[in-house]
Design a protein around this nucleic acid. Sequence first.
DNA 1: TACGTAATTTATAATTATTCTAAAATAGAG
DNA 2: CTCTATTTTAGAATAATTATAAATTACGTA
Lengths: 138, 138
Amino acid sequence: MKQLEFHKERLRTFGLRPTKQRLDICRILFDRKNTFHFTIEKLKKIIEKNNKKKISLATLYNTIHVLKKKGYLKEISLKGNKTFFDTNTKKHHHFYDEGMSQLIDIDDKNISLNYLPKIPNGKKIKSIEVLVKIEKTN
Amino acid sequence: MKQLEFHKERLRTFGLRPTKQRLDICRILFDRKNTFHFTIEKLKKIIEKNNKKKISLATLYNTIHVLKKKGYLKEISLKGNKTFFDTNTKKHHHFYDEGMSQLIDIDDKNISLNYLPKIPNGKKIKSIEVLVKIEKTN
DNA sequence: TACGTAATTTATAATTATTCTAAAATAGAG
DNA sequence: CTCTATTTTAGAATAATTATAAATTACGTA
Ligand SMILES: [Mn+2]
Ligand SMILES: [Mn+2]
Ligand SMILES: [Zn+2]
Ligand SMILES: [Zn+2]
């Protein structure tokens, strides 16, 4: 479990105390091989099931927002009421199955797009996101 | 003003009475040359300024949802709390200036993307949306 | 280790977007 | 013009998120 020390150190690095709650959140988010796409509500359920103890919504919102601001999480552009977050902070894209509310990463190098349109004056590109919506065949 | 007759006819076509409120909405949305990107709140302000009289939020939500269901409006995939709608129902993409909450259309033929990734099994593509986020230079 | 204090968590209230409800107003057929 | 189904409306209900402020906790210092 040297992951834990890593999370502690990372939290301390930007002036945050490594509390039990923050470490619980970091473990769920980052101790995994693949990208994790989640909503706050989903994260809450997972954490509470894991350690059989409630965690406050406010703590979840606070911590997720800090991690996002520090660049360890991305928010995903989707329509709908609840916000989705993404542990993959690299430039990438998504398949999205609206029916199942499921997101799948598409590596940036698997997408090539050649756009001609002139960027509005005085503006520059900040990011490009491709969303491929999918649905059941037939 | 033969536009008005057109809106009336279109509303009647799918069994909706062409009420004063619905026609006000249609005029704002469709009697213009360019795409209109809007939120419900923005539409409400415009209509109320135009005819110096309040219109109910419920009526706006109801009518916008009907128009969307019938294919005369699209909802745009954006993060953030409020929902954006689009009078351009053709396949197209967007520049988005987050700071100004402003959307600009990009014609589909100005985007070419060649994606390799295999579509998940039993799924087919429903739509592809490209969002190019822009920001002030410098 | 114990203390003191600032940071954090928490329950709960407030806010905001959206949907629901049911009473009042209206459209339009006859 | 009358009647009735449809629509509008104000306000209530719901849902996601943010704010508040009291209780708890982390941790530097003695
Ligand atoms: Mn949205
Ligand atoms: Mn969203
Ligand atoms: Zn992702
Ligand atoms: Zn558009």
